[in-house]
Nucleic acid binder design. Sequence first.
DNA 1: TAAGGTAGAGAACGCCCGTTCTCGACGCAA
DNA 2: TTGCGTCGAGAACGGGCGTTCTCTACCTTA
Lengths: 215, 215
Amino acid sequence: MPAPLTEEQNRRAREDLLDAAERLFYERGIQAVGMDQVRAASDLPLKRIYRLFPTKEDLVVAMLRRRDRRWRESLTVSVEQVADPRARVLAVFDWLAGWFAEPGFRGCAWINAHGELGSSSPAVLAEVRSHKRAFRAQLAEWALAAGVPAAADAVFLLAEGAVVTAGIAGDPAPARQARSAAAALLAQQGGVQQCGVQQGGETTDPSGSAPASIS
Amino acid sequence: MPAPLTEEQNRRAREDLLDAAERLFYERGIQAVGMDQVRAASDLPLKRIYRLFPTKEDLVVAMLRRRDRRWRESLTVSVEQVADPRARVLAVFDWLAGWFAEPGFRGCAWINAHGELGSSSPAVLAEVRSHKRAFRAQLAEWALAAGVPAAADAVFLLAEGAVVTAGIAGDPAPARQARSAAAALLAQQGGVQQCGVQQGGETTDPSGSAPASIS
DNA sequence: TAAGGTAGAGAACGCCCGTTCTCGACGCAA
DNA sequence: TTGCGTCGAGAACGGGCGTTCTCTACCTTA
């Protein structure tokens, strides 16, 4: 191998490295994982790691950025399979329920990173804020399309509260609770045909975390 | 001073120590603050610190526990000055708004601690869960008294989302947004006289932070 | 085949961590 | 006054951190 590395080799190494870093940092926390553990998990020489990312902070930021891209893409793909604009907003919570139920779920990687490094690393703080802004903007777009632009803030706060609570309690139930609250708000804010009666879909909320009716 | 320390001296030292630890840990993060910095800030010999709390983890747990007691007491005192049970639930968000606007506000100490140590320290995790359970239970009690027990989950999730969001964005606005959403849910869930019109109490909002409309 | 240069393995560096230990200073009972 | 025992100050300890450096092995080019 001594002979310059190909672009492709570097690209692959970068992905492997980010894979290992993302898994370890999310599982155990960023400060709790040393660069040597990242090296062992990625099976890459330390020298190459530092050529790809000059500091640990750079690695953390790159990891958060890639995760943000994938996270929002997964959400969007899932939610936009739902045709009805109103149901789309609620589908966000079904997607959250699926996420919460994943084996290694440990809350929001960005909120966790903020708790660890928000006060000491401006770069990480900026990345966290950027992610939250993007998520909120996406929700606002869907709320607008559903004719309930004023509900965007509440939907965002309910989603954030659900993620935090599910992460701490280790229980996916908050997704359902947040969904119910969002459904009630949507029924109220959008034009409702009959007083005090919700449109169909919200009250039929089957057991498991992802109801059949909407998603 | 060589001659056993008074009970009173130990009590005072313990409080001073917890004061210093709470301030430093909240400002900069727990892992980012070394015991030597705690020693310097508390102006106590390291030996005495370790006699009061055998490990850093013990100090962290004690700090979180004392903060929990004070935090919930402050909330309760503030909220229970409001007479109307329905308005009480909304007063939670007014109290949050005041908290968010405090100079050093940096989000929820328990959520931050969870992000840092939740996966490595069972004692800290238990303390965080205990705090969240207690907060939720208090909200459920107020929701029940207001005749809207079903709103407890939503109020809790809105509050959690507001705390996290305000902490990350460094902006107290989420308190207002969460309050509005809660007001809408309360108006809907409790018996409402006229369709789409809220009962009195939610819209008349003392002090600063809560607008009249839903937005 | 010889020279040059980059790769990898991992030791080394300086620093800081949580925790313990040493040691001189001092208050109190006899 | 003489010990005894606890105190405070801070050095010491073992280990882990992020990062850099050394050194050998090998491929590539001439």
